[in-house]
């Protein structure tokens, strides 16, 4: 698969047991769309994301990204980039190094790579921040830097694990706008875990609702928001 190409994600009869908890996922995630994984805490949202990222290995089933079976692949060999809720940056390294590690994990950089790093910083609104250390940035700026690294990696899938949960509400909507803008330009497939209904409304094209280790709803956002019948979903919608 070539970089920058679009890709869909398939989980075929993926089964996994972690201690007492059992997970069973079978779904497809459309290419070029933003899909939100939501559900109550402890339902298995992050496990689903970790399976796609390669941090958890399924005991059964296959995971296919863009037509390529990635089930046995190491996280670094999968065509995905990641942004976590927090700690996306190594605090002892400056922003340039943090982002350049996305291009070369041993920091062997060509001239063009250096330009790309600066361009990515520019795109997320952190132009000129190359030598700043993460400790001198606000929470929002740190997440922007994490997005910049995802940009330079140019992987067809972007996995987000509650990327805005640590930010205050006003900042959340600004960051959501940035994400939408980046998505419009690159058309990356985005899979994001969130428990924030507002984020689902604002960002998602499609929704996966996870309940006790299974996907109990998969479909369009508007259909999800209109769900009144399913007990768990309507309760989730009411509470948020």
């Amino acid at each position: 698969m070539k970089d920058g190409q679009k890709a869909d994600i398939l989980l075929r009869e993926v089964r996994l047991a972690l201690g007492e908890q059992r997970f069973h996922f079978d779904c497809s995630i459309g290419e070029g769309l933003i899909t939100a994984i939501t559900g109550r805490s402890g339902s298995g949202k992050s496990t689903l994301l970790n399976l796609v990222a390669g941090f958890e290995a399924p005991q059964q089933g296959r995971i296919v990204i863009g037509g390529q079976d990635v089930t046995e692949l190491h996280p670094s060999e999968r065509p995905v980039s990641l942004v976590f809720q927090d700690n996306n940056l190594f605090t002892h390294l400056d922003l340039f190094t943090n982002i350049a590690l996305g291009i070369s994990p041993s920091l062997r950089l060509a001239k063009e790579d250096r330009r790309n790093v600066s361009a990515a910083l520019e795109r997320v609104g952190l132009g000129g921040f190359e030598t700043r250390k993460p400790g001198t940035l606000s929470g929002g700026e740190r997440q922007r830097a994490a997005f910049a690294r995802a940009l330079v990696r140019r992987r067809p899938v972007l996995l987000l694990d509650e990327p805005f949960a640590a930010l205050d509400p006003a900042l959340r909507s600004t960051m959501a706008d940035l994400l939408l803008e980046l998505h419009r330009d690159d058309g990356t497939t985005i899979l994001m875990v969130t428990h924030d209904l507002e984020e689902v409304r604002r960002l998602a094209d499609e929704v996966l609702f996870v309940e006790e280790g299974r996907i109990s709803f998969a479909g369009k956002r508007d259909d999800f928001l209109a769900q009144e019948t399913s007990g768990a979903i309507s309760e989730f919608l009411r509470r948020s």
Binding site: A53, S76, E77, N88, F90, L101, P105
Partner: peptide, 13 residues
């Protein structure tokens, strides 16, 4: 942070 090891893995260090 746990994320460091995951980042290292996903960046292919």
């Amino acid at each position: 942070p746990q994320e460091y090891w995951r980042l290292g893995a996903s960046l292919g260090m």
